[in-house]
Design a protein around this nucleic acid. Sequence first.
DNA 1: TTGAAAGCGCTAACAA
DNA 2: TTGTTAGCGCTTTCAA
Lengths: 335, 335
Amino acid sequence: MASIRDVALHADVSVTTVSHAISGKRKVSEGVRQRVKTAMEELGYVPSRSAQSLAQGRTRILGLVVPDIGNGYFAELAKGVERTAIAQGYNTFLCTTGFDHARELSYLELVRSRAVDGIVYAAGAPPSGPELARVLGNLPTVLVDEEVPWAPLPTFISDNFEGGRAAATYLLELGHHQTMTVGGPEDLESSAQRIAGFTQAWRDGGGEQPVIASGGFTEKGGYDVVKAHLDLLQRKEVTCVFAANDLMALGILDALYDHRLTSPADISVIGFDDIGAARYARPHLTTIRQDVAALGSSATRAVIDIVEGRSENDARRNVRPVELIVRDSTAPLTT
Amino acid sequence: MASIRDVALHADVSVTTVSHAISGKRKVSEGVRQRVKTAMEELGYVPSRSAQSLAQGRTRILGLVVPDIGNGYFAELAKGVERTAIAQGYNTFLCTTGFDHARELSYLELVRSRAVDGIVYAAGAPPSGPELARVLGNLPTVLVDEEVPWAPLPTFISDNFEGGRAAATYLLELGHHQTMTVGGPEDLESSAQRIAGFTQAWRDGGGEQPVIASGGFTEKGGYDVVKAHLDLLQRKEVTCVFAANDLMALGILDALYDHRLTSPADISVIGFDDIGAARYARPHLTTIRQDVAALGSSATRAVIDIVEGRSENDARRNVRPVELIVRDSTAPLTT
DNA sequence: TTGAAAGCGCTAACAA
DNA sequence: TTGTTAGCGCTTTCAA
């Protein structure tokens, strides 16, 4: 394998010149530039990333930490992150935690071994705050999808509160006034915000006190919520449901069907995220759409800006708007 | 940041000894081992991956090349790959090609810059054979999900032919005898095998000559196939459909619904893959399940074995069994 | 406009 | 059982 020395010898210049001819960090005369270029081509030379990393103290690798890449939401996020990283000359380590804090901490070895230049952290609630903070040190890190109150880091999230509000407003417009909210894990700020926004708008709009349930952000959780509140639904004491994510909404639709309730005729259901599967479900799921690819993109640009010293590691919250997507799982209240 | 020299000074031994105390590649007396361990802890030392990579000429990084991580199938695959890689001390670069051969070739810069030790290639039909082969050189590479006749590489695939056979057999058992097959892209061996297996078993079982359609492996492709053959379906000249992947099957279900045809009552539909969304769809999709996580796992173990010299880069085909998953989109023929 | 040489932080051959 | 030292292939300071 040709090294920079080979190129230098071949082009009859010093390695310094070859290095600069490649990087452009120093003026190199046109003639020499050409000679170097030719030599590189003839030898099929490509600089060694390992050597560059060691010499420069940076790897041009980003770590993307997600709980589960099989979850459509995080897959879309990964897409945005990876695409943006590549465009800026960075590669992306896929780090899936499986919601396992031990495994999560093990990834932090990447940090301590200086294998990554920065981290896009989208793994929900991180392990005990201080621990993570300590281990992260001052490695450029941005939070995506989930804010962590105690972590003074740049954060990229959707407007969860407004999304909740939009869902409530829409259901009220359809004439509903008895609802149920299905939240995710307790410690997730995103879920809390969605439910809070929904509840506020619901009350402001004159809806009755919502029934409150919790489904752990999983499909099964949503399914079980329906089973647990079947009587309410059957007696039409609840005519619409707001789920804090699509996975739960999908589980809810499933359970309704299995218990001979029809959506939207009997029960309107609205989710949050707009994952791919929301479009396959029957009825097609009405939901609050997050532009998650954009979220990933901005977050990635932000870490890279910090890595390359173009911006500070401040703790700004960057909030993206969400959008109500009306499909078939919601309908006007029929009495 | 502490380096190995700092540890050596602190423990009053040579760097060599520190190196060996860590790697275990050479006997180190217990006392010294302890001193080194203590020194490491006190200094918070973690070896630099960049330096190790340069010195050893290997990075302990694998490249995972997939067309689209947003596709549930590849997401599951990635899960298997990443998990297995981590377990063996390797990290995984996520490389999504978006089915774009230019982008795909750009990833090969990773190869030429010796940034990865091996490649798990799951990107469907690769760019013009020889080109890829040349660029890959002798970097350990395994193919997953799709075999490439001209590439003499270890290959990990599901038993596509048998899966097709199983689908046909099942539909025949249900009493169907008029069917339509919906294939993927022409150049994909996987699709061809599934259709071939189906067709063979169908004929052997006495079914009528199948209607042949093609849907490009996408949901929209499946949807459009239904639109194009609507009359056949409405006149019940086709009572069941075999789609070579779930995405198309989902599109088919969608189109049937939109055109007031009911599955399974009017038309039985069977897919292939068993992606997550197959379970959310209504009716729940009957399909041929691939154990894609296992596929990814074996493939990853195989590249690593080659990287670490435990096995040869032979061109063995490794074929995993598939399984018929009966859900709600198939039913006995009613006349 | 160019080059010499000192690292970057490890590993491993060779020596003791 | 341990140490000395020469790389690995770059980047970058300093000097010309």
